[in-house]
């Protein structure tokens, strides 16, 4: 078993090394600035993710949403032996979480909205949003937070975000007009989708073990 593993490992590493050794020709990088200028953007990566390779991104978002549904269903089927009593809350943690939540959400929004001009975009913004909600859950307790922010309607907002992304992308494909407005809208919607998905999964994991 170990010999087989070592052999396959060595062949994998040799294959990777062969890929960069110069045996295969590497194409010259095409001038990407023109593409970015055509979309009214500065970040070429954002233009590629949301423009040239739009189908790739759309199906990736669908895979993400499907996986999150799988996690929710799987954790719902489990039955736990007994709940752990909740952690006692401290005023300092609670206060600092309340203070920090606003700036973090604004920062996530900034990362999403300015994603076509500089580093950023929908995916990191969504991750930051999910982490912010988890930080709040650490301070307040998972169940109280999910009651406060209306979890079921949040889940519907996630599905709504997917539908909106599909609608915006479909409209773009039909109309064929390219511009930075579309990039901003798509980035914000992707941030919503990724952020809410991450929060829902973290919440399910946390509540199934008792508390954070």
């Amino acid at each position: 078993m170990k010999v087989l593993a070592a052999l396959s490992l060595l062949s994998l590493m040799a294959l990777l090394a062969l890929g960069v050794s110069g045996v295969f020709p590497r194409p010259a990088v095409p001038p990407a600035e023109d593409v970015a200028a055509e979309w009214g953007a500065k970040n070429v990566v954002a233009t590629i993710v949301l423009g040239v390779r739009l189908w790739d991104t759309l199906f990736e978002i669908l895979v993400y949403a499907m996986t999150m549904v799988g996690v929710k269903l799987g954790l719902r089927l489990l039955r736990w032996e007994h709940a752990i009593p909740p952690v006692r809350e401290t005023p300092l943690l609670r206060r600092s979480a309340d203070l920090l939540l606003g700036p973090i959400v604004v920062f996530a929004l900034y990362v999403a909205v300015s994603g076509h001009l500089g580093p950023g975009g929908g995916f990191p913004a969504g991750a930051i949003l999910g982490t912010a909600l988890l930080l709040l859950a650490l301070a307040k307790g998972v169940e109280r937070l999910s009651a406060e922010i209306h979890e079921p309607s949040l889940e519907w907002a996630e599905y709504g975000a997917i539908v909106a992304i599909l609608a915006v992308a479909g409209g773009l494909l039909l109309v064929g007009r390219r511009g930075s407005g579309y990039l901003i809208a798509a980035n914000v919607l992707i941030a919503l989708e990724v952020g809410i998905g991450a929060w829902v999964v973290l919440h399910r994991f946390a509540s199934s073990r008792g508390e954070v």
Partner: peptide, 22 residues
Amino acid sequence: SVDPLPHALVLTAIVIDFATLA
């Protein structure tokens, strides 16, 4: 500029890694 296409590919791969890990 560096080649932006691999960056666009791995950007989605990182997110999918998290989802499949969950």
